[in-house]
Design a protein around this nucleic acid. Structure first.
Length: 259
DNA sequence: ATGCAGATAATCT
DNA sequence: GATTATCTGCATG
């Protein structure tokens, strides 16, 4: 092998038509493409439906924000949070179920230059972000892929066979030389501009998949629905949920405002 | 390495 | 009015 045009088929909609905690570990090693940028997924979290998962956005039922999660599987649910970040999910199960998989981290395997550009802090590029941090975290991943409000609901299931032009001499499996720890550039064709797709990629060996509690949530802390590839440098550091107190003292109990 | 504070606004109670 | 499926920078050991 080496350098030839190789094919990685898009995953069919039926792939996503399963419970999110089954889809999630199966998404590891898969490749999410959005336009010219592609990410090999290394860390994900499953979220369940209404009444069954207190940490899920759909726990209390359908709202305007979470409507896409109640739509058909294989679509992107992109939400805005903390006043500045977007995060992306893939919807699971048939319509009305309201479950999805949060895409937490991955390795950029195509469109590296554009991903770097999107992730520069000061537009002048005075701060250089290490490549392994480009998509190391859900908001970082969404930024690197260019996923924003207008991509909420975008279908990530496409027809056809996207081609990946692999570079020679790199270790790894067909079409996706990006073995854990390695970085490569892949040329991508076959995905329409502005469209998204999830390619089958190369799933990791089952015994390298780890699972544990989800990150940054205040409920259901014991549900081990975070999945990642052991030892991969692009997996995000675990952060426990930290309740933040308002900085003003306006609400302190028993304290009347001074005149 | 780990920890904390601030940013900043949609969404829900 | 409170919370939030987060990130960055600055502080400290």
């Amino acid at each position: 092998m080496g350098g030839g045009l190789l094919t990685s088929a898009p995953l069919p909609r039926s792939f996503f038509d399963r419970p999110s905690h089954e889809v999630a570990p199966d998404l590891l090693g898969r490749v999410l493409v959005h336009g010219p940028v592609a990410v090999r997924l290394t860390e994900v979290e499953a979220y369940g439906g209404p009444g069954e998962d207190p940490a899920a956005h759909t726990y209390r039922g359908r709202t305007p924000r979470n409507a896409v999660m109640f739509g058909p599987p294989g679509h992107l649910y992109v939400y805005f949070t903390y006043g500045m970040h977007f995060c992306a999910n893939l919807v699971c199960l048939p319509e009305e179920h309201g479950s999805a998989v949060l895409l937490r981290a991955g390795e950029i395997v195509a469109g590296l230059d554009l991903a770097r550009e999107r992730r520069t802090v000061n537009g002048d590029g005075s701060r250089r972000i290490p490549d392994r941090d480009l998509a190391r975290g859900p908001a970082r991943l969404a930024t690197a892929l260019g996923l924003k409000r207008e991509h909420n609901g975008l279908d990530a299931v496409v027809e056809g066979a996207p081609r990946l032009k692999g570079a020679p001499g790199l270790k790894g499996a067909p079409g996706l030389e990006g073995a854990p720890g390695g970085f490569t550039r892949l040329g991508l064709t076959g995905v329409p501009a502005g469209a998204a797709a999830v390619l089958e990629g190369v799933p990791p060996e089952p015994d390298t998949i780890r699972s544990g509690p989800r990150t940054g949530i205040s409920t259901a802390k014991d549900t081990p629905w975070r999945f990642w590839i052991d030892g991969d440098p692009t997996v995000s550091p675990y952060r426990a949920h930290v309740p933040r107190r308002r900085s003003t003292a306006a609400t302190s109990v028993g304290e009347a405002p001074s005149s």
